[in-house]
Computed example of a mutant assay.
Amino acid sequence: MDEYVDILDEQGNPKGQSCLKSEAHRKGLLHPTIHVWLYTQDGRVLIQQRGKHKDTHPLLWDVSVAGHVSSGEEISVAAVREVQEEVGLTVSEKDLEPIGTFKAVHKISEDFIDAEFHHIYLCKLKVPLTALTKQDSEVDDLALIPLFKFAEETWGLANVAKYVPHGPTYYKTIVKEIKSRI
């Protein structure tokens, strides 16, 4: 869905401008997104396989929930909305634990530059995997995997081609933050 997003400067501050998401991607304009990592108390992390029709990284495994922040929308409100939309889980803003912001710029093609500030949250998953409902247009599959396996595959270089290339620093941060909470 093409929606309006706010444009950010190099430090992640709003520039007071907005445009369609497609235009932001075409021009490589920085804009805000959310990443929500769902984890269980017994040390598993929820990953999603991106839909086969996604513009970027189709069928690769990725963050539990990710999405764009609509123009004028509060970051945490977008996170709550995206969790509901993508995995059918109702969470509140108080369930979200902000762990930082990560700037990422990926040139997908000559006319598609994904330039985003990911606002990253952790959220404890308190229901079984079977209680989740994936958004078929966005998500191909969901899986709960042990944190140590996730760490091995994403920054231990065991199976990095399976995942969206956020880079080892990003993935190490996620693993460390989840590990400190279980």
Rank of each mutant, 00 (worst) to 15 (best):
100 G>C: 13
177 E>K: 15
126 K>A: 05
8 L>A: 02
152 E>S: 14
4 Y>I: 00
113 I>E: 09
70 S>W: 06
22 S>D: 09
94 K>D: 10
162 K>F: 11
80 V>P: 02
13 N>H: 03
8 L>C: 02
180 S>H: 03
104 A>R: 14
15 K>P: 01
42 D>H: 14
94 K>I: 06
45 V>W: 07
83 V>N: 02
106 H>Q: 15
126 K>I: 01
38 L>C: 04
87 V>Q: 01
9 D>M: 05
94 K>F: 01
80 V>K: 04
43 G>V: 09
110 E>F: 05
148 F>L: 00
148 F>V: 05
106 H>R: 15
12 G>A: 12
180 S>T: 08
18 S>H: 11
119 H>F: 13
105 V>K: 15
93 E>Q: 13
80 V>T: 07
18 S>A: 08
19 C>F: 03
75 I>K: 02
54 K>G: 00
132 L>F: 07
172 K>W: 00
84 Q>F: 08
71 S>W: 04
114 D>Q: 09
97 E>Y: 03
51 G>Q: 03
134 K>M: 12
33 T>I: 03
79 A>S: 05
143 A>N: 11
136 D>H: 14
116 E>I: 03
181 R>H: 06
165 P>Q: 11
14 P>L: 02
58 P>Y: 07
138 E>K: 15
88 G>W: 04
7 I>M: 01
86 E>C: 09
38 L>I: 02
130 T>S: 15
173 T>H: 11
144 L>C: 11
35 H>N: 14
157 L>R: 14
120 I>S: 03
171 Y>R: 12
172 K>C: 04
44 R>T: 13
129 L>M: 12
162 K>P: 02
133 T>W: 00
2 D>L: 08
21 K>S: 08
89 L>P: 02
48 Q>A: 15
121 Y>P: 01
91 V>M: 03
150 F>Q: 05
148 F>N: 06
119 H>L: 10
121 Y>I: 11
117 F>R: 12
156 G>N: 11
30 L>W: 13
21 K>F: 04
79 A>L: 06
51 G>I: 04
79 A>Y: 04
163 Y>W: 15
158 A>Q: 14
74 E>S: 10
12 G>I: 14
38 L>Q: 01
66 A>T: 08
61 W>S: 06
163 Y>D: 09
87 V>N: 01
25 H>E: 14
148 F>M: 00
55 D>R: 13
66 A>Y: 08
68 H>C: 13
109 S>I: 06
142 L>S: 07
98 P>S: 10
65 V>Y: 08
137 S>H: 03
82 E>A: 09
123 C>E: 03
138 E>A: 14
173 T>R: 14
28 G>F: 09
9 D>N: 15
132 L>Y: 09
121 Y>K: 08
11 Q>G: 00
126 K>F: 00
58 P>I: 07
133 T>P: 00
12 G>S: 11
40 T>I: 10
67 G>M: 04
99 I>V: 12
121 Y>V: 10
105 V>N: 10
181 R>N: 05
171 Y>V: 05
67 G>T: 03
132 L>A: 10
180 S>D: 11
